Simulated scan of single mutants.
Amino acid sequence: MMRTRLVWFTFGFGSSAAAITHFIFKDLWIDRQSLSSHLKEKFDALDARVSNLEQVVSSNSMPPQDEGNLG
């Protein structure tokens, strides 16, 4: 009788612990994926801004065209 109770208690405790652990890790995994996606989005936007700045700087740094002698 005592062994049966111990077996059922162990089974119930183990099942509860497994379910709680599953939900905690699932929640942590979702948070990690969300953070990763958010950071990727921000870095892509930053990369686009840097590319635009590099294009502006390179177009402004070209030497002026010689339009002939005005003098």
Rank of each mutant, 00 (worst) to 15 (best):
Met1Pro: 05
Met2Cys: 09
Thr10Leu: 12
Asp31Trp: 07
Trp29Ile: 02
Val56His: 04
Phe23Arg: 06
Met2Leu: 14
Thr10Gly: 05
Phe13Pro: 02
Phe9Trp: 08
Arg32Asn: 05
Glu41Thr: 11
Thr21Ile: 13
Ile20Met: 02
Ala19Lys: 05
Thr21Asn: 12
Gly12Glu: 06
Asn60Val: 03
Asp31Glu: 15
His22Gly: 04
Val57Gln: 00
Glu41Leu: 08
Lys26Tyr: 03
Asn52Trp: 02
Arg3Lys: 08
Ser16Leu: 15
Leu39Cys: 11
Gln65His: 03
Leu70Gly: 00
Asn69Ala: 03
Trp8Ile: 10
Ala18Arg: 10
Arg32Asp: 04
Ser61His: 02
Leu35Phe: 07
Gln65Val: 13
Arg3Asn: 08
Asn60Thr: 11
Ser58His: 02
Ser16Val: 11
Trp29Asn: 07
Phe43Asp: 09
Pro63His: 02
Ser15Ala: 15
Gly68Gln: 11
Ile20Cys: 03
Phe23Cys: 04
Trp29Asp: 08
Gly68Ala: 12
Arg3Asp: 12
Ser37Ile: 06
Arg5Asp: 12
Ala45His: 07
Lys40Asp: 05
Leu28Cys: 00
Ile30Asn: 07
Leu35Asp: 14
Met2Ile: 14
Ser36Arg: 13
Gly71Ser: 09
Ser15Ile: 04
Arg3Thr: 06
Phe23Thr: 07
Pro64Val: 09
Lys42Glu: 15
Gly12Arg: 06
Arg3His: 04
Ser51Met: 03
Leu46Ile: 11
Gln55Val: 04
Gln33Arg: 13
Phe43Met: 12
His22Met: 07
Leu6Pro: 01
Lys26Leu: 03
Ile24Thr: 09
Asp66Met: 07
Gly12Pro: 00
Thr4Tyr: 13
Val50Asn: 05
Ser59Pro: 01
Phe23Gln: 09
Ile30Asp: 09
Leu70Glu: 04
Val7Asn: 06
Phe25Gln: 14
Phe11His: 02
Ala45Asn: 11
Met2Gly: 13
Leu53Val: 06
Leu28Gln: 09
Trp29Phe: 05
Phe25Asn: 15
Phe13His: 03
Asn52Ala: 08
Ser37His: 10
Phe43Val: 13
Asp27Asn: 09
Phe13Arg: 03
Leu39Asn: 15
Phe11Thr: 09
Met1Lys: 11
Asp44Arg: 09
Val56Met: 06
Gly12Ile: 11
Leu39Asp: 11
Trp8Thr: 14
Ser36Ala: 14
Leu46Phe: 07
Ser16Met: 12
Ala19Gln: 05
Leu53Gln: 10
Lys42Ser: 13
Asp47Phe: 01
Phe11Ser: 07
Ser36Met: 12
His22Ile: 04
Ser51His: 06
Gly68Cys: 11
His38Pro: 02
Ser37Asn: 13
Arg32Gln: 07
Phe9Asp: 08
Thr10Glu: 08
Arg3Glu: 13
Glu54Gln: 14
Asp31Gln: 14
Val50Ala: 10
Leu46Ala: 14
His38Arg: 06
Pro64Cys: 01
Phe43Lys: 12
Leu46Thr: 06
Leu46Asp: 08
Gly14Tyr: 00
Ser36Glu: 15
Arg49Gln: 13
Glu54Asn: 15
Val50Gly: 00
Asn60Glu: 13
Val50Glu: 08
Ser34Ile: 04
Thr21Leu: 15
